[in-house]
Amino acid sequence: MSDYAKPVPTPSEDSRIYWEATKNHRMMLQRCRACGAFRFPPGEVCPECTSEDYEWTPVSGKGRVFSFVIYHRAYQRGFADELPYVVAVIELEEGPRMLSNVTGCKPEEVRCDMPVEVVYDDITDEVTLPKFRPA
């Protein structure tokens, strides 16, 4: 393992394929074959229609900042060198929202509804985090 000091996500049975995709610098979400809805976080039934029929589908990685916050304190030592840093709720073009970081601009430049696109951060040999930058 590297000397990466921040929390590393622990994939679950549900999310394994999601994290395998990000490792290959692709974003894939489950799309319901019954109603067509994309969903996140991953799960075995569609939260819209309860169908169990889905396929992992590539998504655009484009979206907007729905909301965001700026951390001024490190609650975990790995973040101490990054203060202040942005945690955002990203709404993907395909509908689902996810938490991530906004990078590639100053925290004070981030705005709600700002268009963003995915970038990939290879944090360890095994895990890659999708993050977002201004589009």
Binding site: P7, T10, S67, V89
Partner: peptide, 30 residues
């Protein structure tokens, strides 16, 4: 938050303050 879980801690989302603060940011915007 030391390595457990996913979709939050890895991005530095810790504690109740962060989760609740999103609402104020959006309320300010709208």
């Amino acid at each position: 938050g030391e390595g457990g879980g996913e979709f939050g801690p890895e991005y530095g989302l810790f504690g109740a303050a962060g989760a609740h603060a999103f609402g104020l940011t959006r309320h300010m915007h709208e």
